[in-house]
Amino acid sequence: MNTALLRIEDLKKYFPIRVGLFGKVVGYIKAVDGVSFNVDAGEVVSLVGESGSGKTTIARCLLLLEKPTSGKILYDSEDITQLRGEKLRNYRRSVQAVFQNPFLSLDPRMNVFQIISEPVKNSMKLSREELLEYVSSLLELVGLDKSFLDKYPHELSGGQAQRVAIARAISLKPKLIILDEPTSALDVSVQAQILNLLADLKKELSLSYLLITHDLSIVKYISDRIIIIYLGKIMETGSSEEIFENPLHPYTRILFSSIPDPYRKFGERVILRGEPPSPVNPPPGCRFHTRCPYAIDICRKQEPPEIKSSLIHKVYCWLHTEKHSSETKT
């Protein structure tokens, strides 16, 4: 697969910290600090990391809700921040999103028909009947029937509301959907329903997904590639199998160990201590060294290089360089 749908090159997003009446800038929150990856057509890429690691900020840059500080986001080899006119509209249609809290992402004053038809009305000319038919067909795709058309969000359950949000996202026939924690506000039983639905839709509509989550347990089922991110930087990336079978970065392993498992008693897992450091002054060297149980001297001083374990499995960690890998074994 060499058809990169979206290519992100050295993306940075710094939020200025302002103080005082005149908004003097006293520093920057380095939310995303040099991230590169691509999403191929028909692929599901998962972006995994704890709270504050910059996942949502990346998504917001891709959705043109936030302007990158530097770096490029290429769509059809054109930088999306430079798009105008028809090309911009085309990009908007091609990239859609589903957010974490379905109740906050649906306007409480609109009914389901109005919610789903709004984007359609804005970009296509359809008669009222055609619109009704199209919206009903979308509802059917997401597993709801026509009786939902005139319901309001507060009359829906969490799972149903998320289905409506998904119907809205596919209404413009996008190529890529960004899923920002699409199931973390839902019950476990409903979470599975929604993940199944997303997997089905992907096949049926040949979609790509960028799935954002902090919970590794849901990504294996659906994703082809996984990117582990910490404090605005990529720590490890690889195919889903590689990451699950052979996680290399200590942070990835701790993430795995954090997943609650009913068949394991508490105390048997490694717990990440402390808070993530402030993104205003990220630690020098490897960003994870302050919380890494295996940190060695060099981790505190120099940024780790990229180590390729396979064609696509890459890890940014000193412990996996040839020189140091022996040190950790002993």
Partner: peptide, 26 residues
């Protein structure tokens, strides 16, 4: 800053429509 306003922006709605349909009523 509500996600439903973001959703309207993502759908490509012009500002004036976002204001009249989402911001003002809410």
């Amino acid at each position: 800053n509500m996600p439903y306003v973001d959703a309207a922006k993502i759908a490509g709605l012009p500002n004036i429509k976002i204001i009249s349909k989402h911001v003002i009523p809410n």
